[in-house]
Each structure stands twice: as C-alpha cells, then as structure tokens.
C-alpha cells in the first residue's frame, strides 16, 4: 500500500506540496500542482490520488464546517528506514 502510493509521480508531487503547509483544500492542491509542477489532472483524479495516499496513511483529511482539509503524515515512511536502515559511515 505504501509503495504503491509512492509509485506515482503525481502522488509524489501532491506530497511535495503538502509539505508546504497543513490543512489544504482540494482546490489549493490542484492549484499548486498546476503552478509548481505543471500538472493539470482533473479534480476527480486528484481526489482519487488523495484517497490512495490516505489509505496508505500518508495523508489525513478532516472535515471542518463545510470544507475538507488535507494534511501530510510522514510517519508511515519510517517503515522504510526501519526495514533498510542507513549504514553508519
């Protein structure tokens, strides 16, 4: 699940943009992809990418009032270095 989520370049770009700040709407993520990555997938496609990232635990979404916000969670990435720890120099 984690590796499949990371395997797609658009999903990696979404994660890049979510580093900038927490609590981004779908609209903001789409705007950032267009301007900063020259990526213009449909909003539905971005929503599906966010579903995959959320299933992998890399993104959390929450509803606040009438809006939905998305936030990055890098903690699942620790599984990678736990499994293949960097060697001491």
């Amino acid at each position: 699940m984690l590796f499949r989520a990371l395997a797609d370049p658009t999903r990696r770009a979404i994660l890049d943009e979510l580093v900038a700040r927490d609590d981004q709407t779908l609209f903001e993520i789409c705007s950032r992809l267009a301007v900063n990555h020259d990526l213009t997938p449909t909003r539905q496609a971005v929503a599906q990418h966010l579903d995959v990232l959320e299933a992998a635990g890399l993104v959390h979404s929450r509803r606040e009032g009438r809006y939905r916000y998305h936030t990055l969670d890098t903690s699942p990435l620790r599984a990678i270095t736990d499994r293949w720890p960097p060697r001491a120099e």
Partner: peptide, 10 residues
C-alpha cells in the same frame, strides 16, 4: 454550492 465548498473551490 456544498460540493464546491467541500473541495475549497471559490
């Protein structure tokens, strides 16, 4: 309008 707001679309 609810759908626009949920996705943060002005």
């Amino acid at each position: 309008r609810e759908a626009l707001m949920a996705d943060g679309i002005p």
